[in-house]
Amino acid sequence: MADYSNELVGTSPAIESLRKLVDKIGRSPTRTVLIYGETGTGKGLVARMIHQVSSRAARDFVDINCAALPASLLESELFGHEKGAFTGAVDRKLGLVEAANQGTVFLDEIREMDLTLQAKLLTLLDTQQFRRVGAVKPVKVDVRFIAATNKVLLSEVTSGRFREDLYYRLQVVAVNLPALRNRGDDVLTLARHFIARFNRSYGRAVRGLAPETEDILQRYAWPGNVRELENLLERIFILEDENEILPRHLPDRILRSVAGTKDQPAQPVATDPTDYHAATEAFQRGLIGQAMSTAGGNPQEAARLLGLSRHALRHQMIKLGLLKA
Rank of each mutant, 00 (worst) to 15 (best):
V105F: 14
V105H: 09
D108I: 10
D108G: 10
I110G: 05
R111F: 15
M113H: 03
L117N: 12
L117V: 06
Q118R: 00
A119D: 15
A119C: 04
L121Q: 03
L122C: 01
T123N: 15
T123F: 11
L124N: 00
T127D: 11
T127C: 05
Q129G: 01
F130R: 06
R131Y: 09
R131V: 12
V133I: 13
V133A: 14
G134V: 11
A135E: 08
V136P: 05
P138R: 03
V139I: 15
V139S: 04
V139L: 15
V139P: 00
K140A: 05
K140D: 00
V141A: 02
V141S: 03
V143L: 09
R144G: 06
R144L: 09
F145L: 00
I146V: 10
A147C: 03
T149I: 07
K151F: 13
K151E: 15
V152R: 07
L153I: 04
L154V: 15
L154Y: 02
S155F: 05
S155W: 03
E156I: 01
E156G: 08
V157I: 04
T158G: 14
S159R: 14
S159I: 05
R163K: 02
R163F: 09
E164V: 07
D165C: 01
L166E: 11
L166N: 12
Y167Q: 12
R169L: 07
V173T: 09
V173G: 03
V175H: 09
V175W: 09
L177T: 08
N182K: 13
R183Q: 15
R183H: 05
G184F: 04
D185N: 14
D186T: 10
D186E: 07
V187E: 03
V187D: 04
L188H: 00
T189D: 13
T189R: 09
L190Q: 04
R192D: 09
I195M: 02
I195P: 00
A196V: 09
A196L: 06
F198C: 11
R200P: 08
S201P: 12
Y202Q: 10
R204T: 12
A205G: 01
A205C: 10
R207G: 12
G208S: 00
A210S: 15
T213Q: 05
I216Y: 02
I216C: 12
R219E: 08
A221Y: 04
W222C: 12
P223C: 09
N225K: 11
V226Q: 09
V226P: 07
E230M: 11
N231V: 03
N231T: 08
L232H: 01
L232D: 05
